[in-house]
Structure formats: C-alpha cells, structure tokens
Design a binder for these strands. Structure first.
Lengths: 190, 190
DNA sequence: CCTACCGATCGGTAGG
DNA sequence: CCTACCGATCGGTAGG
C-alpha cells in the first residue's frame, strides 16, 4: 500500500465527479476510494473546489493541445477538420472521466473559474470555425455554409460521444471517427 | 401571497435542478424560492427524490408526446423527420428547465427510476431510427445510411441546443429548425 | 405552512 | 496520513 500522490487524488476526483457529479461526491467518499479518510485529502489539496478546478482545467488543456496537433498535421480544410475530429475523439476516449467532468460539471465552478473555462472552450470552437471558414473560402466546402453554426453542430455531435459510445461495442474508434467525419462533412459539401 | 400548489413545487424544483443540479439544490433553497421553509415542502411531497422523478418523467413524456404528434402530421420520411426535429426543438424551448433536468440529472435517479427513463429515451430514439430506416427503404434517403448511428447523431445535435441556444439571439426558432434539418438531412441524402 | 427539532453528514482544521 | 474535532447544513418528522 503506497502513499497516494496529489495527482492520484485529482484522478480519483475526476472519476467520481464524472460518475456522481461534483455535488454528489463527498470528500469522505473520495477518500474511501483512495483508501484514506476524507480529512487526509487536505494534506494534498486546500479545498474541494480546487479539485474541480484542476480536473476541468485539464480537460480544457487536453482539447486545446489536441487542436494544435491536429492543425499542424494537415493543411487542407477537410484534412484539418478530419484531424480536429480525430483529435477530439482521442481526448474523449483516453480521458473520459476528465472530459465528462469538463463537459458536465464546469458550470458548478464559481464565476471566475467558470468564465476562464468558457473562454477556453470558445477558443477551441473558434479553431473549428476558422477551419470551416477557410474551406468555404477555398471552395472546398460549399458557398453559403455558416461556419459558426456548423462548428456548433459539429462539436455537439462530437461531445455527445461521451454520452453514448461504448468501447466494448462493435464500432471501433477509427470507424467512429469515419462516421462522424462523414456526417459532419456532408452538410458542408452537399 | 397565495398558497403554493404541488405543481408549483415541481416547477420550481425543475428550475433549480436545471441550474444547480439535483445534488446542488437543497430543500431549504427550494423552499426559499417559493417563499416557505424547506420543511414545509413535505406537505406537498414525500421526498426530494420524488421531485426529481416527477420532473424527469415529465421530460420523457413531453418528448414522447411530441413524437406522436409529429408522426401523425406528416407521411413522407423527410417530412416526418422534419416534424420530429421541429417537435423536439419545441419541447426544448418551451420546457427548458424540465429538459435540462431530464438530460443532465436523470443519472442521479436510483436504478429503478433511471432504467425506466432510459427505456423511454430508447423508445423515443427508435422513432427517429425507424423514420430514417423508412426513408432508406423508400429511396428517399441514400442506400447504406445507418439509421441507428444517424438517429444518435441527430439527437446529439438536437439535445445540444439546450446548451448553446439563446432565445434572445439573432437566430429565431424556425430558422434554427431549418438549419438543424438541413444539417441532419445532408448526411442522409448526399 | 410553521415551530421545533432529529440524527447524519457536510467541508474543513489543529496537532501530531 | 490519522485522531479528534468544529460549526454548518443536510433531508426529513411530529405536532399543530
């Protein structure tokens, strides 16, 4: 039985916040998950909200970094859109608890922290929007497509994957990305 | 200052559960919203969870009934799909608090109640699926489209409207429905 | 719907 | 990371 690190605590918090929600998780339950008392958690952190801030910030960072890598790896608009989609799905499937907490519990943050997260999310969405706008300008996507709405709809479909996709199912990750890309791009090309 | 009815209590609960989450709402806060003490709520209900059950069940019923009306009002696959989409958006925009609680807080229900809600949601999704499948069979939609995945993607875009759409914005309801329909149907026809 | 209250649990602290 | 604890708040009840 080794000692828990601060990062163990954050990871377990992400798991529990994802499953039961922030307000549905008590410090004593979180401690039990790690084999210690609720009060012992305060050797690692200052407050419960610190844990939420840390998990949610990590979610924002994961998506932001994935977008950077995606945009560096492709140069056509459709190639970049596909890379953005693949990167988004990678983040969801590899950091599911963090993502669930990011998507569903960020609204429980106090104003200052929540606004910071909203800004990060807006910046991420803007990456999708400008890739779509570039594709419209270059003629790769159809004229008259609304990049703002298209990026909202695209992220709607992508984020929902957290809610329904099962790794154990018959649809594997690359097939999922294919289907998502085809669904999204159809509206941009049709 | 008239007396509150049970339905006032349920409505206020829907509002607060939507905003702060089920576990983030205390009975005392709910009472304050209605101008009475937390303990006085128990003259109307038996438990806090009763309120969640009632709000979530109402959400399920609203969607189910909207689907029935939609399917009765159109007969082609694309007409029915459009009516399903319009009906779904009507439910979201006219019962936003109920819908938010239905979508985000149903998982806080105990097993028995949650499974009932999941069954209702699956039945609702099946309506979308069979309309899409009918359109594929009739040749209205393209051969090879996967009705199951298409219905999941469609409901993903529709449900997300709760998260981003603002009634005060420049996009009015019928334009929203138009855009949603075009986005979804593009993948089925392209 | 209020008064008066219940035991349980909450997030968190002091000191080791 | 535990012991021992804090005041505050939780969902809920009895009786009116």
């Amino acid at each position: 039985m080794l000692r828990n690190t601060r990062s163990d605590v954050v990871r377990a918090a992400g798991r529990m916040f994802a499953e039961r929600g922030y307000h549905g998780t008590s410090m004593r339950e979180l401690g039990r998950e790690l084999g210690l008392l609720g009060s012992s958690l305060y050797a690692h952190i200052d407050s419960k909200e610190d844990l939420l801030v840390e998990v949610v910030d990590r979610g924002a960072a994961l998506f932001t970094e994935a977008a950077e890598r995606a945009l560096a790896a492709a140069d056509t608009a459709s190639g970049r859109l596909r890379a953005l989609i693949a990167g988004h799905i990678d983040v969801i499937l590899e950091h599911r608890d963090v993502v669930r907490t990011f998507l569903n519990e960020a609204r429980m943050l106090d104003d200052a922290h929540r606004l910071r997260v909203v800004a990060a999310r807006d910046g991420y969405e803007a990456q999708f929007r400008s890739v779509i706008a570039a594709g419209v300008d270059s003629g790769e996507f159809k004229t008259g497509a609304d990049p703002k709405l298209a990026s909202i709809f695209t992220l709607s479909v992508l984020n929902a994957v957290e809610r329904w996709y099962r790794t154990e199912g018959e649809l594997d990750r690359s097939a999922l990305v294919d289907e998502l890309y085809r669904f999204v791009v159809a509206a941009l090309i049709a």
